[in-house]
Design a protein around this nucleic acid. Structure first.
Lengths: 344, 344
DNA sequence: AGTGATTGCTAAATCGCGTTAGCAAAGTCA
DNA sequence: TGACTTTGCTAACGCGATTTAGCAATCACT
């Protein structure tokens, strides 16, 4: 382990004071009238010695650590977090920031400890990402102005970034209507406005958009099947149930891709085909969606953009003071092969 | 933004010197004979003011930052990284360490920049995780003794943690043989020892284990199909090819679950059934594996343990000096429904 | 020659904490 | 009473950088 080269080492080797070396290396040499000769000497020596400023030290003085904390209630489940982190990471690093990662498993005590640990390390901002919660408050123990919620709605006014689930819900209906469908079955939630599992953002907002768009067209859901959880087996069961009613050639909105996957299995095991016997449209753009036969038409969660945008907001706020706001990012439609016209 | 409470604030409020306050709060009060009265006063004031030590400052003095860097070449693709990070995260946090995350996309320049940025922040150790590479060297710019490779073999002696792919390969064969299979088809690699895509750890080690175990039983692969990439469509194509040979009732080892998924599709679209017409065993335990009908029997990548173990090694080394070593973690078999006895 | 401005640089304080060395007061002992 | 020990606490330095205030030497001008 080499001893680190400090500014003092550089200054000594260059025969100047630490002050001078500091000024030169922070490009304030001209401003403070350090001679060209000295400047070159300092720079050369710094390069030769491989000098790297000790960020910790700078942090201590400045109070800022060029670091952002990213706390999520889950990293592993659903690759959501993965891409979100990636978006956050890249944008942060591009601006000279590093990311601390933490995971709470939904445990509020753990969240408190993590926030604390990050504040102790002087993070400049905090991104709090949620997979499970619809509404939440900004965690205590940190300047609320330095927090951005990700995929969760703030209870009190605060900055937040979420996918525009509502718009995607509307667009799902519009896509089907445009193809000529009028009978739309819901898989995972509905038909009533409150028939939603748990308290996820996705559920209620998607359903709201769907119902509003149907209503605008003077329609109602042809049927709805609430599932407490949204796993393939739940989609399988719900689709079996729908198949048992004898319906064919109509449209299905699955509330996420995992449900849709279960629905595929039910359709295929019944000897039927997508999209001939059922048009299916869904949400998430799970990795799986592109692998199915036919590939699944679905609205993509803009994971990467969510993470990126959260960092942008955080960094922007350092400069400008603005009113906190909830920002909704569009969920782009991935048109693949699971939607066709209704059966004649 | 509240002004932070510093040790000096506590000392003032308690009417003692900073030294005294420091001693009390680091539990050296008895040792250094601070009166019980003063100790209680300091503690009470600290609690009242909500004093939290500034870790940055401690770091500057100690040279250690209670921080570990985690650099991976991909976070998003395959939830591998997700669970690895989770394992690392939890174990690190449990020991009072935080994790910096970085991602290189396989770009060596980016890797250099990230290592640099982390060293600048005085990380105590570095975990370098790889999804793409078989062999790699420890990155430059940091004490090689403070690095643990994850899912990559070191070129020169260094600490590394990898899944025991070779043993899993052997075990896959042994599982099939135990069920009575003697004809084993390989999907994704083989039949030759060098028929491996790219340079992933998984490919060559799994194949090695498979071929050795077959050889021990006096067997050879019944067939092998190399795929350059291991996506479902590649598994689909390879399985179609196998189906065209007319084989039925034999065993298939898919080199990962995505290939196996493609194989499922081919089998089902041919109107055949798993495990009646084909026994399939695979590797990874992708989330998908449990969703298939029948659920896929597969060897799980011990993501969580990999991450956790890497941190353990890193932290342990701070204490004991040992020879660097490559540690292989077992890939547990998830027995599900895709393996049956060969057709009579 | 004397005053003032400019040039080129540096000493010292600061950020928040830990640590070493040591000091004053009280207590103990012969 | 004087020498020594114990008790209870603190002054001061250092970690590595930045920043403010200012100093000595040279130059410009009347």
């Amino acid at each position: 382990m080499h001893k680190r080269v400090t500014l003092a080492d550089v200054a000594n080797a260059a025969g100047v004071s630490r002050t001078t070396a500091s000024l030169v290396l922070s490009d304030r040499g001209d401003e403070l009238r350090i001679s060209e000769a000295s400047q070159q000497r300092v720079r050369r020596v710094a390069a030769e010695l491989g000098y790297r400023p000790n960020v910790i030290s700078t942090n201590l003085r400045s109070g800022s650590s060029q670091t952002i904390g990213f706390i999520s209630d889950t990293v592993a489940t659903s690759q959501l977090a993965g891409d979100m982190i990636k978006g956050a990471l890249e944008h942060a690093h591009r601006n000279g920031y590093m990311l601390f990662i933490g995971e709470t498993e939904g445990d509020l005590d753990e969240e408190r400890r993590l926030v604390q640990a990050m504040v102790d390390r002087q993070v400049d901002g905090l991104i709090v990402a949620s997979m499970f919660t619809l509404e939440r408050s900004v965690p205590a123990g940190i300047d609320p102005g330095a927090v951005v919620l990700l995929n969760a709605l703030p209870e009190a006014p605060a900055d937040a970034v979420i996918p525009d689930e509502y718009a995607a819900g509307r667009a799902a209906v519009e896509t089907l209507l445009a193809r000529g469908h009028t009978r739309v079955h819901l898989l995972g939630a509905g038909p009533g406005r409150t028939d939603v599992p748990g308290q996820t953002v996705a559920g209620s907002e998607r359903l709201g958009g769907i119902l509003d768009a149907l209503s605008d067209a003077g329609l109602e859901p042809a049927s709805g099947r609430l599932a407490r959880v949204w796993l393939p087996e739940d989609g399988f069961a719900a689709m079996r149930d729908l198949l048992d009613t004898g319906v064919r050639g109509e449209a299905v909105i699955a509330f996420n891709d995992r449900l849709a996957f279960g629905a595929y299995q039910a359709v295929q095991e019944a000897g039927l085909r997508i999209p001939d016997d059922f048009s299916i449209i869904s949400f998430d753009d799970h990795q799986l969606a592109g692998w199915l036969h036919p590939a699944l038409t679905t609205f993509a969660l803009p994971h990467y953009d969510l993470g990126r945008r959260a960092v942008e907001i955080l960094l922007a706020r350092a400069d400008t003071r603005r009113e906190p706001a909830v920002e909704r990012l569009p969920m782009p439609l991935r048109v693949r092969g699971s939607v066709a016209a209704p059966r004649a």
